[in-house]
């Protein structure tokens, strides 16, 4: 178990270094950073001085090493457009994105799992057929369209929920802001969470349903029934637990993509998160923000995958034995 964790950790570090290399090359090849930072009137000498001061004349491996060192210390340089440290900008934005992502993941799991179980156990009932057809919509409609549809329905027509922003936020600790403690903050979360989580919810539902149908046919479920165990035990203790391994894989990967690709939802709802900032950075060629975003996303993916691998061990005892 420990050896396994260490191996996985080593792999994760390799992935991070490769991503860092990509992020680093952004600086080198997407325009000249000095040109981005100074005005037109700056003289060539001043530019040279700035170049020297930024270390841009050092050999590339030295620059890369410096880049990794500062990135490890959460220092991604200064944003071209805001003239502020990138890490400060991210710290302000991260709580919004994480809150949104976790709420939508929660929504996807809390709704998707029960729907999947129901549809797997009662495959012939009209309710499960309805679930399946509705889930097709969730999979096939693009996120921005669903967002706009929800805004039109609940914000414009019914005027129940706000159409943009985080509502009122409360400062918790030194840098975390939360919308979960105020009524307007929670109201503001509802529509973006559903928009972002709908695809994941349908995916989880269909996955659980398919796995349930598979597991229900196995001998140990038949044997559990032949022992006269009540349905509650057969369905939840035996069947559901056995469906969980693939579900955890997908959920983990999807959680990563929820956080990383909240961009569209954040744009539709003008949600002040990292995704919105990233989009603006792309429009303004703000390379430090782009490369920091790349690194952060990769870090999230790698950590989530690592946690998922550890979870397998907790669920499936067969993996715990050392492969002798």
């Amino acid at each position: 178990m420990l050896g396994f964790a260490i191996r996985r950790l080593a792999q994760a570090i390799i992935v991070m270094i490769v991503v860092a290399l990509l992020a680093f090359t952004l600086f080198r090849f997407v325009g000249d950073p000095v040109n981005q930072m100074v005005g037109i009137e700056t003289s060539i000498e001043e530019r040279e001085a700035l170049r020297e001061r930024l270390g841009l004349n050092d050999p590339i491996p030295v620059q890369f090493a410096r880049f990794i060192k500062s990135a490890a210390q959460f220092d991604f340089g200064t944003s071209y457009q805001f003239r502020q440290p990138v890490s400060d900008l991210f710290l302000k934005r991260i709580p919004a994105t994480l809150e949104l992502s976790f709420m939508s993941a929660l929504f996807a799991l809390a709704v998707g799992i029960p729907m999947g179980i129901y549809a797997g156990l009662n495959r012939e009932s009209w309710v499960s057929k309805l679930f399946l057809s509705v889930s097709l919509i969730g999979i096939s409609l693009p996120t921005f369209f669903i967002g706009i549809l929800l805004i039109f329905l609940f914000s414009v027509t019914l005027q129940w929920l706000p159409s943009f922003g985080r509502g009122e936020v409360v400062q918790v600790g030194s840098w975390w802001t939360t919308g979960l403690l105020t009524v307007s903050g929670i109201k503001a979360l509802i529509l973006p969470s559903i928009t972002l989580g709908l695809y994941q919810m349908t995916l989880i539902m269909r996955l659980i349903r398919a796995e349930m149908l598979e597991v229900i046919r196995t001998d140990y479920i038949k044997f559990a029934r032949a022992r006269g165990l009540p349905n509650r035990l057969v369905h939840f203790r035996h069947a559901l637990k056995n469906t969980l391994v693939p579900v955890i894989t997908i959920t983990g990967l999807q959680l990563g993509s929820i956080i990383a690709f909240a961009t569209i939802t954040e744009t539709v709802f003008q949600w002040p998160g990292m995704g919105l900032m990233f989009l603006q950075a792309v429009q303004n060629v703000d390379i430090p923000i782009m490369s920091a975003y790349l690194l952060l996303t990769a870090f999230l993916f790698v950590s989530i995958n690592f946690i998922v691998d550890i979870l397998y061990y907790l669920i499936d005892p067969r993996l715990r034995v050392e492969r002798a």
């Binding site: 140990y220 038949k222 559990a224 637990k241 056995n242």
Partner: peptide, 15 residues
């Protein structure tokens, strides 16, 4: 009571 053919698949592997 009932006993099935394949003992390798008759028991829930996770319990």
């Amino acid at each position: 009571g009932m006993i099935f053919q394949d003992p390798l698949t008759s028991l829930d592997p996770l319990q």
